[in-house]
Design a binder for these strands. Structure first.
Length: 421
RNA sequence: GUGAGCGUAGUUCAAUCGGUAGAGCGCAAGAUUGUGGAUCUUGACGUUGCGGGUUCGAGUCCCGUCGCUCACCCCA
């Protein structure tokens, strides 16, 4: 192998790979648009400070940053939310609420590449700004669901696991658990799906809960569905919100895709209400999508408190899920007409027909060099041409050409004027 | 950032106890000259990721390095 100048973790989208990416992106865009979301885009490069606001200095280890020729500290965007927040801050006072925006940014993260995680990826972002918890959250979740359905997935393939941050934090607080211990508990609960039961049990034991706290935790973990939640004697605003959200999901016909999962707790640092993650039912992969409500986040960027919710869905895990289920379309070129000439005498006529057909919107190709007819036919076959039109002196003398259907192999004579009008 | 496995033609892979590299696919040319997908024939392409060491001799063993993959950390 010769020297490879490609950059680590960056992706080369060869035509077949790119067509599969486009397949995913098209489904995302189409779905968001039909819910009335407006598409926007931001810069690929942002100031490094923008990312420090939310995450502090340690974020630098996980993103691409550099100093430009003017001495500015910059970063390649690792996500879109800070950009969205920055842009919203400038227009939020005059923009009619709610603001419904979506974007499909190309993002970069300085991480060690592994399954489901690359340094470069596309992420479908859908957000509603200026609307309190309720139907907006359900609509955003519906966009996520419908975009997956548009790609051929069904309720048997994936599940939206929903929880509520307020419900969890208030519940733990009522157990008499400190904020500190709560954070450790979140991690343990989140990790539970990856490790065996005993490991989880041991980790919980280390927290030294008293009998009442253990009971409360067991009760919490025993909540497996919305019915369990409803019958729970304990209540708080988060619980009521969850019940309300599920009633709306049912009304919208989305409930088959959704389930309450009290183990969905990670990424809770800035979420304030409804939170969710979408998983392949096999659960053998990372989350396909994650999102929720973040009512205080925009204040950190723009200084004004404004409620918001949204999700991010990457192309990497989703692409793996679709590939595993055979839902990515096989790649093939689509050529409507491949024009073949017997000799260079017919080249002029061929070019005129080519142009005319292209004006009508057909995809037309021909060889550049005057190859043997056999070679031209082989080429037509290889590029997947539906029809071949042969330009030869014999037929052209009568103002005709031969059109061959490459699937059936049948040929028929057609008038030149059928192509040029 | 930590750990494990793997790096052989464009690609997928093979090469016994260390004995100086091979196949399929693909690509190119051809099988009497206005017709493709099949078959057949022929051909091109490798300093075995890179550097060093052990050895008479290394694709094979050892060290380093880079890269890929997977897991951990992290996941905005």
């Amino acid at each position: 192998m010769k020297s490879d100048l490609s950059v680590r973790g960056m992706r080369d989208y060869y035509p077949d790979v790119y067509s599969r990416l486009q397949h995913i992106i098209n489904a995302w865009r189409k779905t968001a648009l039909c819910y009335g979301f407006e598409e926007f885009e931001g810069p690929v490069i942002e100031s490094l400070d923008l990312y420090k606001i939310k995450s502090g200095d340690e974020i630098i280890r996980q993103l691409y940053n550099f100093t430009d020729k003017g001495g500015r500290e910059l970063a390649l965007r690792p996500e879109l939310t800070p950009t969205l927040a920055r842009m919203i801050a400038k227009v939020q006072s005059e923009a009619p609420k709610p603001i419904k925006w979506f974007s499909i940014p190309r993002c970069m993260r300085y991480e060690k590449p592994q399954k489901g995680r690359l340094r470069e990826f596309f992420q479908f972002n859908v957000d509603i700004i200026g609307e309190e918890e309720g139907l907006g959250d359900v609509e955003v979740i519906s966009v996520a669901i419908d975009s997956l359905v548009a790609l051929g997935l069904t309720e048997r393939d994936f599940v939206v696991k929903i929880n509520n941050r307020d419900f969890v934090s208030e519940y733990f607080k009522s157990m008499g658990v400190s904020e500190d211990i709560s954070l450790r508990l979140y991690k343990i609960i989140d990790n539970a799906r990856k490790v065996d039961e005993q490991t989880t049990r041991d980790a919980i034991d280390e927290l030294n809960f008293n009998q009442a706290q253990k009971k409360a935790l067991d009760d919490y973990l025993a909540i497996k569905n919305i019915q369990d939640l409803k019958s729970l004697s304990y209540t708080n605003d988060g619980k009521e919100a969850l019940i309300y959200i599920f009633s709306l999901l049912e009304a919208a016909g989305m409930d088959d895709f959704c389930s309450l999962d009290v183990a969905v707790v990670r990424g809770l640092d800035y979420y304030t209400g409804t939170v969710y993650e979408i998983y392949d039912r096999s659960e053998r992969m990372r989350a396909i999508c994650g999102g929720g409500r973040y009512n205080h986040l925009l204040k950190e960027f723009g200084g004004i408190e404004i409620p918001a919710c949204g999700f991010g869905m990457g192309d990497v895990v989703l692409g793996e899920v679709l590939a595993e289920k055979g839902l990515l379309p096989a790649y093939s070129r689509q050529i409507d007409y491949f024009l073949v000439r017997i000799t260079e005498e017919e080249l002029g006529t061929l070019l005129k027909v080519a142009h005319s057909l292209r004006q009508k919107g057909f995809i037309v190709e021909h060889t550049y060099r005057p190859l043997a007819v056999k070679k031209q036919m082989a080429r037509a076959s290889k590029v997947g041409a539906n029809k071949v039109v042969i330009f030869g002196a014999d037929e052209l003398g009568d103002g005709k050409v031969t059109e061959k259907d490459m699937l059936t192999g049948k040929e028929l004579k057609k008038a030149l004027t059928d192509y040029i009008q």
